[in-house]
Design a protein around this nucleic acid. Structure first.
Lengths: 250, 250
DNA sequence: CGACGGTTTGACAATCATCAAATACAGTGG
DNA sequence: CCACTGTATTTGATGATTGTCAAACCGTCG
């Protein structure tokens, strides 16, 4: 299994993702690998953090999908964002931080502590990678707001699929426009502010128009360019220098 | 004009806000005041930053209201969040950051450079205040997502007004549940994913039910507790210790 | 085989959008 | 001081998108 990232014999999505964001030196790469050796597991549909719970350590998703959620008093649920392999939650700088939303596992998830950057110095590439992660997180929140506020059901769904494609590409988890997407239609509804029934009908439309295939927890984007044009999708850019050097992980 | 914050003879909303978040020492207070002496002004409806523009320096809102926006290709607009006095934009840690959304002035706005925290050390209270700002920013984004995804027009509007109340209270800009809110119904629509016509009708309902008054760029919350119950509003908490020591700025 | 979670389908209802016009309001210039 | 202009708010009539409810279908697992 040769990897496009060289150097590392044991390549993993989280590592690949962070290496795509910054030029992680050998030392930090080793620390990341060490951290990923001490993982913990959370079963699908279990909570990882509760709202208001003190955050003890920034955590990295190693495998699986998780999400941040809010639950209204009457049971309505809103998914605020997704956490995919290589994503980091709870990287806070304020004292005694608490979780501002529930974090829960969608699939079985393995987690590890995110190693602290060694210094706050300019040359700390791991710190840079974390900073870029944080900026991308924010960009995806803004994407989400735009979808919910100003797009139709059809646009929302297509836009979200493009975002998944982009993010999973960063972790090397996509091949030939096909990627895993282990969400039920209910999850998609709670993400996009729609009912699962309407998600179903909208998905059918996308399939009918040969824009994508979606089945068995996987999505294939058949017409990514057309979808991007329709939904006004733009890849996230948070740095001057393209931010993610690596673009084609194929 | 006696201030609840003591010490400072020349009290201003941004200063008051940051002092409410952390225990800013004399030195940093002076640096903030110095920075606020070198302000620049942006006229209402003018852009402050364009999307993709390099960010040269973190910026603090001194007076006026601004917002972050996204514009879709066909002219649909989504307001992503608001920037009120004491808020900070562009506090990025990644190298060569670029703006990920347009920032534009709603009213005339005065801005200043946000002084850099003196060190990354633990005891840097200004850095702490910035960190809490950042965490609150994120919390407000999550609020926004929940409104857009899972609340009715009525709930969205009421929830947003409660959030404005909370945020302006932090800057000491509210008295007796009345605060400035210089948004046209079109702005509110573009914020809440609704048309200005529907905003109008929803506002009328809130007035009819004596929940709030809204006119002349000001809002009065008549039944804040009832509104909070209806909309499931919870004040933002990002730290263990209540985060904002100061609660009643009256 | 039956139970279960997820998907699909249909009929109907509600929220919110669209379009168009009237009214109110503030600022400007005569 | 008062028309005049432009922007913002308000109102009405109609329609589209999406929600609700209920049932059928489908695959998987014990």
């Amino acid at each position: 299994m040769t990897s496009p990232h060289g150097r590392s014999m044991e390549w993993t999505p989280p590592l690949g993702r962070l290496q795509g964001l910054a030029d992680i030196p050998e030392v930090d790469e080793q620390r990341l690998k060490d951290a990923m050796r001490r993982t913990r597991t959370v079963a699908a549909r279990r909570d990882i953090w509760l709202e208001g719970e003190p955050i003890v350590c920034a955590t990295m998703i190693v495998t699986g999908w998780a999400c941040r959620t809010r639950l209204l008093a009457d049971g309505r649920r809103q998914i605020l964002g997704f956490l995919l392999p290589g994503d980091i939650v709870g990287m806070c700088r304020q004292p005694e931080p608490v979780a501002i939303a529930v974090v829960s596992a969608i699939t079985d998830v393995t987690l590890c502590d995110a190693p602290l950057p060694r210094s706050a110095s300019e040359s700390d590439e791991l710190g840079r990678a974390y900073a870029i992660c944080a900026a991308l997180d924010e960009a995806y929140l803004l994407n989400h707001i735009t979808r919910l506020g100003r797009q139709t059901a059809y646009e929302r769904l297509a836009h979200l699929m493009l975002e998944f494609g982009e993010r999973l590409a960063g972790a090397g988890l996509i091949s030939g426009n096909r990627f895993p997407m282990p969400l039920t239609q209910e999850y998609l509804g709670d993400t996009l502010g729609l009912t699962s029934v309407h998600i179903n009908r909208t998905l059918q439309q996308l399939r009918r128009e040969h824009m994508l295939e979606a089945a068995n927890g996987h999505v294939t984007l058949l017409e990514p360019d057309a979808l991007a044009a329709i939904t006004d999708y733009k890849p996230a850019r948070v740095c001057r220098q393209g931010s993610r050097a690596r673009r084609d992980p194929c």
